[in-house]
Design a protein around this nucleic acid. Structure first.
Length: 541
DNA sequence: GCAGACTCATAGATCAGACG
DNA sequence: CGTCTGATCTATGAGTCTGC
């Protein structure tokens, strides 16, 4: 820890030190946790310094009292740069984190009080914690969280370009061969470290792993890799190509985020490089006690993959979008392409499992960017309505709808078919061929993120009635008849309406109940009378 | 070192269906 | 029609990690 005034404040406060010691005992053996502990202690140190400016406390324990609660709120606001005039935090996340730390500290103080049978300490800590639970969200947390969420609404989301990834991959392959040759010719810690950095980056890039996970790969995990080729009956379930791939790659399991087991696939060239690294560890100055596969020579620590990735990205020429090449963005890239590939549920599960996500998190954070979805897919519904052609798309999925953006809006007299179509319920799936228009639109909207994936690359036969269809018929089923409230809409179909309800800012149940459609029909009376005039059959609950 | 993002767990809110 | 119950969704807290 840097020896500045914050460090001095921490060292001068026994309570913070003991609290830090307890955190340390919890994660003593995990080097990566030490950074986290330092950060937590410095947050408390900074809060203490801020509190000292506005009140006469000397230690953090004096702050953990109900009568000091309002001063603590003030100090936390000052610390996170809260402006009373604008009501905006400079660092909203700091405000939230400090709150968590304070609560955790209060619980620590209470437990220490219990050990010493110090009733006053216990009472103060308990009451402070109580106040925290009941008031903090109103005083600080709620506002800070809202601000954090709002900041994300219109923040541009940059995904890596496929071309950039290819260039980086080629560059790394070139570097790997060069450093492998160097290490074989001259075993030095510099050559070892350079080869380790390239291999680490390659493994992370190829597997789309989190930077920390690959960095902390253990030597033992690599040495115990399973190289057996015969899978017996399992092979029967695989195609010839898949069997070939099984022989090509080696799979090892490593510890992922939150202790989860995640797989890593290694190509022959990665294995060659890793074999060279493991053979020459001691000669190249890697400490015997350092169990990390990508160890730092002469140290207990490991190479940080995100630093390596950034270094190679900056070295590699011709990368158009270097700031998008981070481990998280690469993970989003593969997950986004999975949407383009229209994977089935089980396949998506497999992908999410490989990436170390649960499926809910995968859908929430790693699907196509919401803005792209809304621009590319849901906008078609709105355009179709503007053009008075909603009925033309009866029974079609969003992907199948083709809308000409240049077409003028027909505000003239009603078309009988339109009226008829709107009042009909579309149940049957369409046999139209799969259209890649939506994916093409995605690529051309804002980021052209899916370059390099041609329509032929990704087109897959669509299953009849596949659950991934977001069909207009579902929408009509839910909304266009008086029986709408009595209809049982499956959970799957409910999910399909999510994009639409998100754009419209309505709750899904609202849409289901037909209430949304009721207001929509009112809206359409003005926007597109041709669709509705004379539509007597359209009655809404 | 720090701010913010990611992830998971859980409490609370909401809804649908069963039942009296 | 009101109440209960279980399922599902949403918001929030908290821990962990990444990117700069």
């Amino acid at each position: 820890m840097i020896q500045d005034k914050i460090a001095v404040a921490i060292k001068g406060d026994n309570c913070i030190l003991n609290y830090g010691f307890r955190l340390f005992k919890k994660n003593e053996k995990i080097v990566s946790q030490h950074q986290y502990i330092r950060q937590k202690l410095r947050e408390l140190g900074r809060l203490l310094l801020e509190a000292k400016k506005i009140t006469h406390v000397k230690t953090i324990q004096e702050l953990i009292k109900p009568e000091q609660y309002s001063q603590v709120v003030r100090a936390a606001k000052n610390l996170s740069g809260f402006s009373e005039e604008t009501g905006i935090y400079q660092c909203p996340s700091l405000a939230r984190k400090v709150g968590h730390s304070l609560h955790s500290l209060a619980m620590f103080i209470k437990s220490e009080g219990l050990k010493k049978k110090d009733k006053e300490t216990i009472k103060d800590a308990e009451e402070f914690a109580q106040l925290y639970l009941e008031s903090w969200r109103f005083d600080i947390a709620g506002q800070a969280l809202t601000q954090l969420n709002r900041a994300k609404w219109n923040a541009p989301q940059l995904l890596p370009l496929t071309q950039d990834i290819q260039r980086l991959h080629c560059y790394l392959e070139e570097k790997l061969q060069q450093h492998l040759k160097d290490l074989k010719e001259h075993r030095s810690s510099t050559n070892w470290k350079e080869l380790a950095k390239v291999t680490l980056t390659q493994v992370m890039l190829f597997n789309r792993r989190r930077a920390g996970e690959v960095s902390r790969m253990r030597l033992s995990a690599y040495l115990s890799k399973d190289t057996s080729e015969e899978q017996g009956d399992v092979n029967l379930a695989l195609t010839a190509l898949e069997q070939k791939l099984c022989r090509h790659f080696v799979r090892i399991a490593i510890v992922g985020k939150r202790g989860r087991k995640v797989p890593v696939l290694l190509t022959p060239s990665m294995r060659e490089s890793l074999d060279a690294l493991t053979e020459s560890r001691e000669e190249c100055g890697v400490l015997k006690d350092n169990g990390y596969l990508f160890a730092l020579p002469q140290s207990d620590h490991y190479l940080r993959a995100c630093d390596c990735l950034r270094q190679f990205v900056s070295e590699c020429a011709d990368i158009k979008n270097p700031q998008a090449l981070t481990s998280i963005q690469l993970r989003k890239h593969i997950a986004t392409l999975s949407t383009v590939l229209n994977l089935k549920t089980t396949e998506l599960d497999q992908l999410a499992d490989f990436l170390g996500h649960n499926i809910a998190v995968h859908r929430k954070h790693y699907r196509l960017p919401e803005s792209t979805l809304q621009l590319a897919k849901v906008s078609k519904v709105l355009l179709a309505m503007e053009q008075g052609r909603l009925g033309d798309y009866k029974g079609k999925s969003l992907d199948e709808i083709q809308v000409d953006v240049n077409e003028t809006i027909d505000m003239e007299g009603p078309l009988a078919e339109d009226i008829e179509d709107v009042s009909m319920l579309g149940e049957d799936g369409s046999d139209d061929e799969v259209s890649m228009s939506s994916t093409q639109e995605c690529t051309s909207t804002s980021q052209s993120q899916n370059q390099g994936v041609s329509a032929t690359d990704v087109s897959m036969p669509r299953e009849e009635g596949s659950e991934d269809e977001v069909s207009m018929s579902s929408l009509q089923e839910c909304s266009s008849t008086s029986q709408v409230q009595n209809r049982s809409v499956s959970a799957k179909k409910r999910g399909k309406l999510w994009g639409l309800h998100s754009l419209l800012g309505q709750s899904c149940s609202f849409i289901f109940k037909g209430f949304y459609f009721a207001s929509l029909t009112q809206h359409l009376k003005y926007v597109c009378p041709s669709l509705l005039s004379g539509a007597t059959s359209l009655t809404v609950a």
